[in-house]
Amino acid sequence: MHAMLDISTLHYLVLGAALFLLGVIGVLTRRNVVIVLMSIELILNAVNLNLVAFSRYWQGIHGTGALHGQVFAIFIITDAAAEAAVGLGILIAFFRNKETVNVDEVNLLKW
């Protein structure tokens, strides 16, 4: 009974998978670019959760110095900041030209 209630790495992985799927659904079905970018943030956070959970698991094997997963999570947060800055810059430029924020009206490169 008690062993079943313990939280293992797998619990965190399942939660990360659920968040990842929510992000994928958001990216594929929403029209508002801002919410699409937020869904991408959800996906990145799901990956981060997995990395930190694996880091915890790895520490159980190799001692508390094995923090590579957490370092990777920090790098991914850096990437997310860069992605948000550039993505929102593109969004502002696009909104200035077309007066819309809907993804399916972005067709300047379509032929």
């Binding site: 313990d6 698991y57 508390t64």
Partner: peptide, 19 residues
């Protein structure tokens, strides 16, 4: 399973310094 179901260890260390 590929990932163990047992509980996680509780050892802490100097997290920030190690990072």
């Amino acid at each position: 399973t590929l990932f163990p179901e047992g509980k996680l260890s509780y050892a802490e260390g100097e997290n920030t310094q190690r990072i």
